[in-house]
Design a protein around this nucleic acid. Structure first.
Lengths: 210, 210
DNA sequence: TTATCTGTCCATCAAATGATTGAATCATGG
DNA sequence: CCATGATTCAATCATTTGATGGACAGATAA
């Protein structure tokens, strides 16, 4: 079976894919309720009816966007895991932070949408959380905090969430935070990496030394 | 001069204040675009025209909510500062985390709205950021990272942001994270405090030892 | 009592918004 | 070339939503 999303991911030039790409960005900036189908259609340069033809309703498109983004992020995390495999924990974390941060600054809508889903409600009936894969367990294993994906203790899940969210915050909040520190984009990215390492690495490596 | 907001804050029984209290909660849950004036009016048990009579437009009400919440948070931070004054850094951070976390779990809409403003855009003309006080400089001083409110270096601002956001994340994301760790509310709150201390205290105290 | 002011609601408006219909256009295979 | 299906758009609908006008009730002061 081929879902509409899979089709769109295969051919990035297709109308389906073009709409999806724009929808990712706009939904990421304004959230579900802050986005109108007209905003997306106009940005793509098409009529709203064309958008509906390809994706059905607004909610369907939003769900596809969320799934699409989670697939991309999962893929990136696998890539990171391959690079850091076998290194000592401190290095593993530093490299993970660098790679993940670089990736997310290239696709900030990923962070945006993940945070939107964490912190906001959508006054829409069913939540479609079942289709979203769970990363925390994999990251926990990758950090040496859990042996297998099953039975990760709550304490560990919380720690992983703290690290991941900290990254998303700085990417997604760039428009707000960067004016506060008054630096250009390049410097901001460097500051983010530096800060993340400063905050997170000591907690885990100090613990390891015990 | 007495602004509508100040009047409402004085008499919590007044219609103005009742509307404001509900608006805080609803705006916090659904964001600006996700909230309708009818949702708020219905929750208060009044007609929308009554809401408009007291607060003008939706945007005016939202601005008042944002200001109200920031005043509350600032007040709380002053309270915390008085308690931790003079203690060693590790203790100061532990107590700050406990007090702030307890407060925010009582008023989660504070975290909700702060995060909404960080991470989401509002397709509305002027942003009214000027009216929002800036906390980071005060917190930086309180943590011994800066001597005065002026000229706080970017590195320091970033560290403070990391800590504050980390707290807001766990409060605002409770609906999403708590099911993940499968614990009751009380246990979740304990886990949050524990995790925050685990993550943030080593970074700053280790640095101090140098 | 009467006049005035405040607060509340009912009815309604105008714009925005998600969605659909049907005609026109384009592509592809026969 | 023609038939068929896929794609696109203009026009339109129904509902939602922010907002207002005017009637009405109650309090207060003259």
């Amino acid at each position: 079976m081929t879902t509409p999303l899979e089709k769109a991911r295969k051919d990035p030039e297709s109308m389906k894919a073009r709409i999806l790409a724009v929808a990712r960005r706009i939904f990421g900036e304004y959230g579900f309720h802050g986005t109108t189908t007209r905003m997306i259609a106009q940005e793509v340069g098409i009529d709203i009816s064309t958008l509906h033809y390809h994706w059905g309703g607004k909610k369907d498109l939003y769900e596809s966007v969320v799934v699409d983004i989670n697939k991309d992020l999962r893929q990136k995390l696998i890539e990171v895991e391959e690079v850091i495999h076998g290194l000592p924990l401190g290095e593993r974390m530093a490299i993970s932070i660098d790679m993940t941060t670089d990736y997310l600054f290239d696709y900030p809508e990923v962070s945006n949408l993940i945070l939107f889903r964490y912190f906001g409600k959508t006054r829409q009936e069913g939540n479609f959380d079942s289709i979203i894969p769970e990363f925390t367990a994999d990251i926990a294993r990758s950090m040496g905090l859990a042996r297998d994906r099953k039975n990760v203790p709550p304490e560990t899940t919380m720690k992983v969430l703290a690290v991941m969210n900290s990254i998303h915050n700085f990417i997604s909040g760039e428009n707000f935070f960067r004016p506060m520190v008054k630096v250009d984009r390049e410097r901001y990215i460097a500051l983010v990496k530096e800060t993340l390492k400063f905050i997170h690495i000591p907690a885990f490596t100090q613990n390891e030394a015990k």
